[in-house]
């Protein structure tokens, strides 16, 4: 792992100490923990009554109710679970754009969210693109222990999801970090990712060169993901067309997020430090 990227992980971890993940109001699922779950459990919070069935813990029988009704009634309590965060990272080549802060911002943001999740007593899992989605090694450990995040995968986010989707935990929080620059309708992918999720947040991470069109002149554009090139003379009208196309792409993602109940925000990699408030606005982070 390159030193700057390691430094980004450390920076992200330090920044994340100030935040906690903002958990959704809806009941969540997970391993035994400290948060109320959606199912019956062993907490002190009453949930419901039901008839006794063989195998039920005799300590949960409500004897007062038995005295009144001569029936064995079991008192159910809410379970206590530990919330879970699935952090889905787009580590394709487009996120490793040279001469930009995009890969560093990805590392920093992932570390920040993981640390914020720890602060919120959430378990976490990091998924990254490659030949399908793969789990990052040591992702349950603090970011400094993650080791190398292999950037530059040949598959796009959509292709990787098609090959091998991530095994996401049900009723967990899910956060996608990607530049969202792939062709096709985003709605099918978003539907799959939002299925069974307590919440879904989409963070579009762009380099400044992605957000703004290049200066006028002759330019040979090279797709960093596919290697394809395009020689073009950029003038004012083409710059305007570029801006319109980007706006249209973002609008299509916005519409898809609206339909799936996801939250979308766009961050500029070079301005990440000043953009964290946007994550609070979409109720992903809150001060710790």
């Amino acid at each position: 792992m390159k030193a700057p990227l390691r430094q980004s992980l450390i920076d992200g971890e330090q920044a994340g100490l100030r935040y906690a993940l903002c958990l959704p109001n809806s009941p969540m699922s997970g391993v035994r923990g400290e948060r109320l779950g959606r199912r019956a459990g062993s907490s002190v919070d009453f949930q419901d009554y039901r008839e006794y069935q063989p195998g039920d813990d005799l300590r949960h029988i409500d004897w007062n109710a038995y005295a009144r009704s001569n029936q064995l009634i079991v008192k159910l309590h809410r379970e206590e679970v530990q919330p879970h965060l699935d952090l889905i990272l787009d580590t394709s080549a487009s996120m490793n754009l040279p001469d930009t802060d995009k890969p560093a911002a990805l590392h920093q943001l992932a570390a920040l969210l993981a640390t914020a999740a720890t602060n919120a007593r959430c378990s976490q899992a990091l998924w990254m693109t490659g030949e399908g989605f793969q789990r990052v090694r040591n992702d349950t450990q603090p970011p400094g222990a993650w080791g190398e995040l292999p950037m530059g995968g040949a598959r796009s986010f959509e292709e990787a999801h098609g090959l091998l989707p991530p095994r996401l935990r049900r009723q967990g929080m899910r956060v996608i970090i990607s530049d969202l620059l792939w062709p096709g309708d985003p709605l099918p992918t978003l539907r799959k990712l939002s299925e069974g999720a307590a919440s879904l947040h989409v963070i579009q991470l762009l380099a400044r060169t992605d957000a703004t069109a290049p200066e006028p002149g002759n330019v040979q554009l090279q797709d960093h993901e596919t290697g394809e090139t395009l020689s073009i003379y950029i003038d004012a009208s083409i710059r305007q067309t570029y801006r319109d196309t980007l706006r249209s792409l973002q609008q299509s993602w916005h519409n898809a997020c609206k339909q799936t109940g996801a939250q979308l925000t766009t961050l500029i990699a070079e301005d990440l430090g000043q953009s964290l408030s946007a994550l609070e606005e979409i109720q992903l982070l809150e001060p710790a």
Binding site: S94, M95, L97, P98, D99, K102, D179, L181, W182, P183, L206, A207, T209, D210, P214, G217, N218, V219, Q220, L221, Q222, D223, H224, E225, T226, E228, L230, S231, I232, I238, T241, Y242, T245, L246, L249
Partner: peptide, 16 residues
């Protein structure tokens, strides 16, 4: 002359 410029994707240059 054409200066080389790597971009994340040519998706946004589809029109050209």
């Amino acid at each position: 002359r054409f200066r080389k410029l790597p971009v994340s994707s040519l998706l946004l240059w589809q029109m050209q």
